[in-house]
Design a protein around this nucleic acid. Structure first.
Lengths: 186, 186
DNA sequence: ATGTATTAACGACAAAAGTTGTTTTTCCAT
DNA sequence: ATGGAAAAACAACTTTTGTCGTTAATACAT
């Protein structure tokens, strides 16, 4: 998924991981808005300037972290076989719910600036996943369909994660019919 | 739509408008990221501290401005009669396209931080609109439906606005069937 | 193993973001 | 019109952001 062009310098990987870890541990303590770049670099025992060598700001860090994690979660669950069959769709929707629940539980209540990043990454990863399936099945306008469906699922999942008054499975059942008919359209 | 509880002090209205105007004029000159709060207050001939009396940051200003404008556009076009009939849906989707096109044209190319705000307001306003129609028609789970549909439309419109390789009407025709079947589901 | 190139570390800097407290202006109810 | 309440103006201050130039460390190819 948007693979890096060449081998990545292990130091870069290491530094990124250190920033991710520090950031995650801070997120479990205080709200995103209250976390400064300095907080992150202090905890990761890196220089603040080093942070800016890797990310433009803390939003980019959040975005990258969420994207990587959700993509990894999807990858792990579907073990790579993209598809648009019911089973795969159930997994996809469920994965979104689980991911958002996991993110929620690891964080100190979401902030204004926090959600949009999570949301956009969830949409991106799901869209990419759907797009592959749609293209191999030779659907009509795959890009448009992939966008509409990934956004619709993301919206449903975000709403569910805010309210959490039913089980993820119930949401899947409520969402799936709409998604399937949308996918099936000529 | 989330009306203010009481009459609003004219000074507040005035100050907000001054900030909106200054901001809009700056947006036509340089990118959102490069605009500072000081830029905005200088142009609006207000003190920088005054800005913070009204908005928490420039993101909140953008958000408020986009929300108000899109809501006004919708209001103007539908002259208040929310509905879920085909005619109303066409108008809704078209309104989203037109709004995004208008925003694009008035701005210096969108930035990373810019789009999410526009996007979220477009979704919010459309969701509210759909929700009213769905509730009066006694639909099944109106909140979920309203979310999925508004997000799907917003996604389609955002994608269209980035690419702009077809007319808005063509997009409406491509999007409408999916939306209608989703709305009609039992 | 060593040299080269890349990257991190570091310190210092300028600019912008936010905050606080005080004073002045403006609205509006009486 | 006048007094009280609310908002704006203003200045000063702290924190955070973002950048730059130099030095030190480290990965990798030879």
């Amino acid at each position: 998924m948007t693979e890096g062009p060449t081998k990545i310098d292990p130091r870069i990987r290491r530094t990124r991981q250190m920033l991710f870890h520090a950031f995650q541990s801070l997120l479990s303590e205080k709200a995103f808005d209250l976390i400064t770049v300095q907080d992150i670099t202090e905890r990761s025992t890196l220089n603040r300037a080093t942070f800016y060598d890797h990310f433009t700001d803390k939003f980019a860090l959040l975005e990258a972290m969420m994207g990587e994690r959700f993509a990894a979660l999807i990858e792990a669950r579907t073990s790579g076989n993209k598809s648009t069959c019911e089973r795969a769709l159930r997994h996809l929707i469920l994965a979104a719910c689980d991911f958002l629940a996991e993110v929620s539980s690891g964080c100190q209540r979401h902030q204004r600036q926090f959600e949009p990043m999570v949301e956009s990454q969830v949409k991106n990863v799901m869209r990419e996943y759907l797009l592959i399936g749609l293209r191999t099945h030779g659907a009509k306008s795959p890009e448009l369909k992939a966008t509409m469906i990934s956004w619709a699922i993301a919206g449903a999942a975000m709403q569910w994660s805010r309210e959490k008054k039913t089980s993820p499975e119930k949401l899947v059942n409520a969402v799936l019919p709409t998604v399937q008919t949308a996918l099936a359209e000529k």
